[in-house]
Design a protein around this nucleic acid. Sequence first.
DNA 1: TGGGTGACGTAATAACATTACATAATAGGC
DNA 2: GCCTATTATGTAATGTTATTACGTCACCCA
Lengths: 167, 167
Amino acid sequence: MNDRKAPSFPAHNHDHGACVSGALGRAKRRCLEKGIKWTALREQVFQHVTASHKPISAYDLIESLAKDGKRLAPVSVYRILDVLQAAGIVHRLESRNAFFACMTAHDGNRQTVTFVCGDCGCVTEAEAPEAFRALGEVAKVARFHPLGTIVEIDGTCGECTGRPASC
Amino acid sequence: MNDRKAPSFPAHNHDHGACVSGALGRAKRRCLEKGIKWTALREQVFQHVTASHKPISAYDLIESLAKDGKRLAPVSVYRILDVLQAAGIVHRLESRNAFFACMTAHDGNRQTVTFVCGDCGCVTEAEAPEAFRALGEVAKVARFHPLGTIVEIDGTCGECTGRPASC
DNA sequence: TGGGTGACGTAATAACATTACATAATAGGC
DNA sequence: GCCTATTATGTAATGTTATTACGTCACCCA
């Protein structure tokens, strides 16, 4: 019982191995459920995306995946990112043209808010049912039929306020 | 009294001239207030952004501004877009890497939701105080200090549902 | 009146993303 | 097992979005 249920940023010194293995497990399960193949390459890409809580650009991902001179073509990475996004296990940070791994258990109907810390660069998601309900109201009044909603909040995370930066 | 107060999409056949002149007036006033110079070039760029309710990419803007073979360099357009964004009279649609003119009177502290119609491509903003309050709550619980919030909702506008597309 | 500042130009390049087509791996029916 | 349809990945080229570095010009005003 050492922990609050509330969404919060990963402590700068948390056990990231646990994050990764959790995410990996959920990812495989999710793909299995959806009939999406879990290939070696997809796993590699996913692991590199999970490497930190910071979003990574497609090209940095290529860099990070490069091995003895061999590097994936952009198109390959984008294809795989598309699959992982469709599976709901990687999300795109629209405001940064970058990608991050989903570290939470939310289901297909993603209704989360994404927090982006300007200091440490990390990203987390939080459920926000109240906010989404209110947004639904606004849409209704505007006679707008929503299909997908992006909420990205820039700011400073609790881990960073009043401390030297870096995740 | 033919009209609701509620935010709604521009009718496909609305008086767009009125939108443009309203926006232009607000824009000049806003820049004056903020001590931002309103130059001929900035006005041209702004007018081309307001040309429709669809977001426009920086490069399409260059295209649209081109005159007898003369075209602005990308950097010039981006600089001007930066200024207009800082003035709060043009916004960036993050999910599309494109820009649209602010057609509403909200002040510096922008707390609006952006609706993007996938059919006609048009964009509108709506105030959503309830939603922003709820988002503030979520942030507080997550011990996150928000500096800026992006809310973009994709879907279909009332004008388009059940009709052939095009604004 | 000169010098500091801000606006804009020029050139190059970086960063992000897609199209079209080819080849390889795999699953399922037979 | 073997064929074939399908999905996954590779290769090459190109398109799109955005920035950096540096130069010139015009204007304000001390």
